[in-house]
Computed example of a mutant assay.
Amino acid sequence: MFLSNFYLECYPQPVPQAVSYIIKKIVGLNFVALITKLKISDAKDYLLNTNLSIEKIAEYVGYNNVDHFSRTFKKYYKQLPQQYRKLKQYSLLSLIKRYTK
């Protein structure tokens, strides 16, 4: 969880073709797709477990542009980050209310 330092250290450097090939064979994703998936997964964790702003979350997972981050997040979760956070918080509150009566 929260691998933003990893992204910042590894992503800007070119990945040797052999490494990309191995990653693709094992994981089924190319290097860029794998890093993007990890970033967005970490962003989801930040959204659910912190009160950080969307801008801070985007920055922490390695996005310089919040709009680009939001579009990418939506590709994975079919919702903008703000919508995802609100829906998950509402769902959790509903469950708590249901089981604490």
Rank of each mutant, 00 (worst) to 15 (best):
Q79G: 00
T100V: 02
Y7S: 07
F2W: 05
K24M: 07
T72K: 15
Y76K: 03
L38W: 04
L52G: 00
D45L: 14
C10H: 13
T100M: 05
K24E: 12
S53G: 15
S70E: 04
L92Q: 15
T36Q: 15
K25R: 00
Y11P: 01
I57S: 10
S4W: 10
Q83F: 03
Q82M: 06
T36R: 12
E9L: 06
Y90H: 07
N64A: 06
Y76T: 03
N51G: 15
Q17A: 10
L34H: 04
I35E: 09
F31P: 00
T72Q: 09
I23D: 03
K56L: 09
I40R: 04
F2G: 08
V32A: 11
L80N: 08
T50S: 12
I26A: 09
N51K: 13
L93H: 09
F73P: 02
D42Q: 06
N49S: 15
I23H: 07
A18T: 10
Q83Y: 02
K25Y: 02
Y11N: 10
K86M: 06
Y11A: 03
G28E: 04
A43Q: 10
I23L: 13
K56A: 05
V19E: 06
Y63G: 01
D45F: 07
I22A: 00
K88M: 13
L3C: 11
L92Y: 13
K75H: 10
S91K: 10
L80Q: 13
F31T: 13
Y90K: 01
K25W: 01
L34A: 11
A33Q: 12
K97D: 15
E55K: 10
P12S: 11
N64R: 04
K39M: 15
I26E: 14
